[in-house]
Design a protein around this nucleic acid. Structure first.
Lengths: 206, 206
DNA sequence: CCTCTTCCTGTCCAACTGGACAGGGAACGT
DNA sequence: ACGTTCCCTGTCCAGTTGGACAGGAAGAGG
């Protein structure tokens, strides 16, 4: 047992702080969370946070990297899996997989998007570009989108996907159920596909 | 000059506190805003907040009532104006009018929806019911929505409308412009109408 | 055996928080 | 003239905040 585990709990406390920070930042927001709360949930002294992460902001950076990195990996694998297929159903299933995966990380993502600093803008920019590329793939065979749809198409798709994520806590109450529970998610995803293909309302003058 | 103005600035400081609270709660969130910040922006002593509103929470209640009430009034008038018409374009114009009106109140609404307590659920519930009623009106002549659209239709419409509102700060950076600037808003509203009537993608097998 | 590094804790601190409270000063009714 | 009422302020307070720091436990390596 040379370097396998120098200490029985090597890195354990650090990971616990990271997990606690993730949960509390996601549920309450960064400003409303105290370092003592985090330490208490991790079961360590609040001074340890400073040792491992320098400061509260340092912990946030570490959590950011962890969560945003894990989402980037999810996207990458989802894209690889569905590569070449390029059907709407496939894209919907990939999106559901990515965003439905982990409640904690999903909620953290929501906080990042909503707290509205430059991290949010950066993330949103990546999401918009990703949605745009996906739309390009989907329309590769049938020709590009008409001009009047082109400008907002990626945003519209994104709003449909991100809406439940952004409103999750309130939506959970209104629905009376977890909006990302698999059956609900599949149902909503199907409805989104239907909307994107056929619209919602029958054509109508004016 | 009997009861017209008992004091030259009667109610002025109270209104200033309300306005400052609205702006700061909207921009930073309730928890991250201090009573002293609010008082400083209003140009009064922080002790005055307590005099007029009992507590920080009391000020929030007053702002809530002000903002949510003003939106309810906006909805009511928008509905009256467009009464009987019942076209999608009319509904889109009304929604744009309501949500595009006042940047400060719009941002406050965003905070309420996002901070995710029971106020958010209550508001979201009202919005969902409102969107559902609007959809019923729009489909009154052409017959009800098909079953597979019916369940999520109101939510989809809401996500399209609320998406830009929820993501406003990040969206502003990504777009490089105010997402609720009139021309942009009109353009997006038209794109939403197009999506709802015709879909985004041409019909496609699978 | 001793020492070093790593991880962790208890404890102190200055700054700030929301709130409490006594009092000041101006317009009002009398 | 004078007390009353309404706004408003300065100032104090106990509690909490993020952070600083000295030291302690324990395995690693000599």
């Amino acid at each position: 047992m040379a370097a396998t585990a120098r200490r029985p709990d090597r890195g354990e406390a650090r990971a616990a702080l990271l997990t606690a920070g993730l949960r509390l930042f996601a549920d309450q927001g960064y400003a409303a969370t105290t370092t003592r709360q985090i330490a208490a949930e991790a079961g360590v002294s609040h001074a340890l946070l400073r040792y491992h992460f320098s400061s509260k902001a340092g912990l946030r950076e570490a959590v950011d990297e962890d969560v945003l990195g894990s989402f980037a990996r999810s996207f990458a694998t989802a894209r690889e899996e569905g590569a070449g297929r390029g059907t709407l159903a496939e894209a919907g299933r990939a999106a559901a997989l990515v965003f439905g995966a982990d409640r904690g990380r999903r909620r953290y993502l929501r906080r990042v998007l909503v707290d509205g600093d430059e991290r949010a803008a950066q993330l949103l920019g990546r999401l918009v570009r990703g949605a745009g590329r996906e739309l390009d793939r989907l329309t590769a065979d049938t020709g590009a989108l008409p001009a009047e749809s082109r400008r907002w198409a990626a945003y519209q798709v994104l709003f449909l996907v991100l809406g439940p994520l952004l409103l999750e806590p309130a939506l959970e109450v209104v629905l009376g159920a977890d909006p990302f529970e698999p059956a609900t998610l599949a149902d909503r995803s199907a409805a989104n596909q239907h909307l994107l293909q056929h619209g919602l309302l029958p054509p109508h003058d004016d």
